[in-house]
Simulated scan of single mutants.
Amino acid sequence: MNHVELTACIAELSALRYTPAGIPAANFVLEHESEVLESGVLRKVKLTLRAVAFGMLAEQTVQLPLGNAFRFTGFLINARTSKSVVFHIQVIDQVLNPI
């Protein structure tokens, strides 16, 4: 199953664009920072990830403030032009009490 949930901040946000089919699209960069327990050792985790949203979610995304924490849900695919990963966002929830 390809299902990802990530709490992150929007670090960069491109202007709203439209696909050739006329669907709104928003490209952005997410940043995540936390600590996780791995093999009994506390590890600091930092992640920067390219993301995209389509349709009404894209229109909402371009209005979100940079730097605020949100919970993103979606799936991962390889970018069309490279072997890098892109997080396709399906749901965005505001995080009320980020840790």
Rank of each mutant, 00 (worst) to 15 (best):
A51Y: 10
L96W: 08
M1S: 11
L16E: 05
L66K: 11
I99S: 12
R80S: 14
E12R: 14
L37W: 11
A25K: 14
V85K: 11
T7A: 03
I92P: 05
V95G: 00
A58Y: 12
V45F: 07
N97Q: 13
S14A: 15
V41K: 15
G74V: 02
L47N: 09
L57H: 05
P65T: 04
N2W: 12
S82E: 12
Y18N: 03
V62T: 09
V85E: 08
V62P: 02
Q90C: 06
I92S: 03
F28R: 05
H32C: 01
Y18W: 14
T73Y: 05
L49T: 00
G67L: 15
A79Y: 02
V52R: 06
I99H: 13
P20I: 03
S82N: 15
G22R: 11
S39E: 15
L30Q: 06
A53F: 10
F87Y: 10
C9E: 14
A79F: 03
M1T: 06
I92D: 07
A21S: 15
E33T: 01
F70V: 02
L30C: 03
E38H: 10
L76R: 01
L47R: 14
E38Q: 15
A58S: 03
L16N: 02
K83T: 11
K83Y: 09
A15H: 12
T81N: 14
V91D: 06
A58E: 10
V91K: 10
F28N: 05
V45G: 00
V52A: 06
I10P: 04
I89L: 11
E38C: 00
A79L: 13
N68Q: 12
P24R: 08
H88L: 12
E12I: 00
G55C: 01
R71Y: 00
N68H: 09
R17L: 08
V41S: 13
N2S: 04
A8K: 01
I10C: 02
I89R: 06
A53L: 08
F70Y: 15
L13V: 02
V91Y: 05
Q94Y: 08
L47Q: 12
M1Y: 11
F87K: 02
V4A: 04
I89V: 15
F70G: 02
V45D: 10
I92R: 07
T7K: 14
K44H: 14
A51S: 13
G67H: 11
T48G: 05
G55I: 00
V36H: 10
S82M: 10
R17W: 04
F87Q: 04
A21V: 03
Q90Y: 04
V85Q: 11
F75V: 03
H32I: 04
Q63L: 14
S34A: 09
F54P: 06
V45M: 15
A15P: 07
R17T: 12
H88G: 01
